[in-house]
Amino acid sequence: MAKLILSIEGTVLKEIPLLKERTTIGRKPHNDIQIDNLAISGEHAVVISILNDAFLEDLNSTNGTFVNGQSIKKHFLQNGDVIEMGKYRLKYLNETAQPGAGADFEKTMILRPGAMPRPADPAAAAAPASFAETTAAAHSTTVVGMETSPVAAPAAVPVPLLGAIQLLSGSNAGKELELTKTLTTLGKPGVQVAVIARRPHGYFITHVEGTSFPVVNGRALDAQAHPLNDHDIIELAGTKMEFFLKS
């Protein structure tokens, strides 16, 4: 569930869960978050929650609303954003934003028109209910029939080293090509082409087209991807080149 933590000069005053579709912030008592300070306008700003997202809107306040030091009129709140009004700070925390939280986060769900739930409706925010319960609730809520599945920590560790190719023969001998992109194709289209894929755990070369296959360290490849090691020698479309890792 998303929440705001109100503080002044480093002292936390209170924690406000974003339970409503509109959470108003201002000096006057009718606001959901009342900040009784003259630097705050009567109706200063509003946080609009749509399911797991929240938007902050400044209501033409006298002294303005700032997010992470920038003056804003309208802002799509992201986990960890710091909202400033006068001397007050509101930190926006959205737990579902952390990877691994919210077991059904990646599940496709149907949203029924005209039956949007309140943003932090406990039924929607809680872990997915059992199947029978979800079904029973299907007519009153928008979220239907989800199953919990464990969510692993995201993979995708960047390649620690940058790979490059240096041409060893041909008219461009000596030329170097850094392999910064996910894919780099080499060769002559229609004759012989290979692709080098940059993956989290290293570089891989695969044959793409042509009757002859690339040769790595004197051995011809098959159709499978072949991992590249530092100082591998590749022969392709009549050109010799060396793969190496840059430190």
Partner: peptide
């Protein structure tokens, strides 16, 4: 970019697309 680069080999292109999704977390 993947489609453009691997158009000559659709099988490899499909493998590559799935691999990219999985390398990025495959959630």
């Amino acid at each position: 970019m993947t489609l453009g680069m691997l158009a000559a080999n659709l099988e490899l292109c499909a493998t590559q697309l799935i691999q990219m999704a999985n390398d990025n977390g495959g959630r």
